[in-house]
Structures are given as C-alpha cells and as structure tokens.
C-alpha cells in the first residue's frame, strides 16, 4: 500500500495514495500504517482524500489502526469522499472517529 507520511505542526499526517482500501489490501494497509506511525507525534491524521472506495474489511483495518495507536495516541480521519463517508455512517463508526471533510478542517481543529 502506497502511503506518504509527514509531520506538520507536531501532527503526524499519513496520506493514502491509492484509491481503494478493500479486502485485497486490508492487511497491507495495517502494516503500512504501523510503519508510517512508528515513533511519531501523538495525533495521527489519516488523509483519505484519494480513497474513493472502502469495504467493511477496509473499515476494519482503519479501526484496527486506531486501536493499535490507542490509548496514548489518537487517530483522526480527514478528506472523506462521499462513498467512504457513507460506510462510516451506515456502520455508525462516524460516532467513534473524529472525521473531517478536508485536511484543512482537520488541521484547523487540531490547532485549536
């Protein structure tokens, strides 16, 4: 799974560079997230702006990543496209995560 990781204003940002997080890549996603977030800041923003499809396996992999970071570190989701947002809402996972439509919204919230 191709991701890019950077640190801005003491926030770890991980951008997914692929369009799908599905059953075929769910394990790769978890591994890539563990690697990208090793030894970083406490707040991790997952930039999903390029992702236009997730299935329940992809959702599960994002939940697993959140649990892996917890309790010391927090996973925040940003850039949810409509199809991705829908999966979180249908499963009520939108009540579990902090979710922002854009990276700018997420960063503004993290700063405040």
């Amino acid at each position: 799974m191709e991701v890019s990781a950077r640190i801005e204003e003491q926030i770890q940002i991980v951008s997914i560079l692929e369009s799908r997080i599905d059953a075929a890549v769910a394990l790769d996603f978890k591994d890539a997230m563990r690697t990208a977030t090793a030894d970083g800041p406490d707040t991790v923003v997952l930039d999903l702006g390029k992702v236009d499809f997730i299935d329940s396996s992809g959702l599960g992999a994002i939940v697993a990543t959140m649990k892996h970071l917890a309790p010391a570190r927090k996973l925040v989701l940003a850039g949810l496209t409509p199809a991705v947002d829908k999966v979180f809402r249908l499963t009520r996972m939108d009540s579990v995560f902090s979710m922002f439509t854009t990276m700018d919204d997420a960063m503004a919230e993290m700063r405040s």
């Binding site: 299935d55 329940s56 396996s57 959702l59 599960g60 992999a61 939940v63 697993a64 959140m66 649990k67 917890a70 309790p71 999966v87 249908l90 499963t91 009520r92 996972m93 009540s95 579990v96």
Partner: peptide, 18 residues
C-alpha cells in the same frame, strides 16, 4: 454495537449488515 470501549470496537462483522 459500537457503543463499547475503544479496545473492544468491532473490526469485522459489518458485511452482512451492509
């Protein structure tokens, strides 16, 4: 059920619901 402790959050079982 997602009204659970974070560490008990389900990572699967959503497929048939969807």
């Amino acid at each position: 059920d997602v009204d659970v402790d974070l560490m008990d959050m389900p990572e699967g079982g959503f497929g048939w619901f969807l």
